[in-house]
């Protein structure tokens, strides 16, 4: 276990000199999209070795701002996706960690384990793709969620997966590189496969349609949400304040006209 460090930040030079093994602030001063405000006190976590994280479980919005600056174009969209994948990966990692005390069937555990694998791979892939622009780590909070309770976990999983699908579908229009659009497409359909599987665990073979529908596919068209709609829905699970900056003024609605 790494010791939990607190870095007092007073200058960008200090950030660049930080000796922490995974100092995630080092590029803050280089015009990066991610700023921690106020930039004087934060914790440096290692999500791999310290899964609880120093800020895990603190109240939503009690941490510093994490800014996604959409003026950075495709990089910002990938950061946005990276943020969402961090949440999903963290969630399923905790679901798996609680298996010993949870009431999931073996078949359900297999599904949730696969989903955890996929989400961690998505997170790490974006981390790699972003390179120097990956320098932010979101800490999570789940209120009173009982990770041992099947019903509660599946309901939260459904929220994450449906939101992920809507977020990707709504953000694609802001991508300018075909390669990035294609990459987002490769991931969103896997999120949709997850969403349908989770929904089918909750309500098997349901045909219930609409916003409150329980079906694996509750609408003929999935939702497409603008970042300004997604962020408030994700924020309750985030300790930091996820802050879109320079978000595009225009948004082209999808067929459901609800984004």
């Amino acid at each position: 276990m790494p010791e939990k460090k607190t870095m007092v930040i007073s200058s960008t030079e200090q950030l660049l000199d930080a000796k922490t093994r995974r100092s995630f602030l080092k590029l803050m001063g280089a015009g990066g999209a991610v700023f921690f405000l106020p930039s004087v006190l934060t914790s440096c976590s290692d999500e791999d070795d310290d899964p609880m994280g120093p800020a895990f479980g603190q109240p939503s919005g009690s941490g510093p701002a994490v800014v996604i600056d959409f003026s950075r174009g495709d990089t910002a969209i990938i950061q946005y996706a990276y943020a969402l994948e961090q949440l999903e990966a963290d969630f399923y990692t905790r679901v798996m960690a609680a298996f010993s005390a949870s009431n999931f069937s073996p078949a359900e555990r297999t599904i949730l384990t696969d989903v955890k694998f996929h989400e961690v791979i998505h997170r790490e892939a974006f981390k790699a793709i972003l390179g120097p622009s990956n320098d932010f780590t979101l800490n999570t909070t789940y209120g009173n969620l009982n990770f041992g309770d099947r019903t509660s976990v599946l309901a939260t999983a459904r929220t994450f997966e449906d939101l992920g699908v809507a977020a990707y579908n709504g953000a694609a229009q802001y991508l300018s590189a075909v390669a990035n659009l294609e990459l987002a497409g490769k991931i969103v359909s896997v999120e949709a496969r997850h969403a349908a599987a989770i929904r089918d665990l909750i309500a098997p073979k349901s045909s219930s349609q609409g916003d409150a529908g329980t079906s694996f596919a509750p609408k003929a068209f999935d939702d497409a949400f603008r970042p300004g709609k997604v962020v408030p829905l994700a924020q309750p699970f985030i300790v930091e304040v996820l802050t879109p900056r320079n978000a595009p003024a225009t948004f082209v609605q999808g067929p459901n006209n609800n984004g």
């Binding site: 990707y168 579908n169 497409g185 359909s189 694996f216 609408k219 068209f221 999935d222 939702d223 999808g254």
Partner: peptide, 12 residues
């Protein structure tokens, strides 16, 4: 956007 919202439904 319309095509993508169909695309993910096909995945479901």
């Amino acid at each position: 956007t319309a095509a993508l919202t169909i695309h993910s439904v096909e995945a479901r």
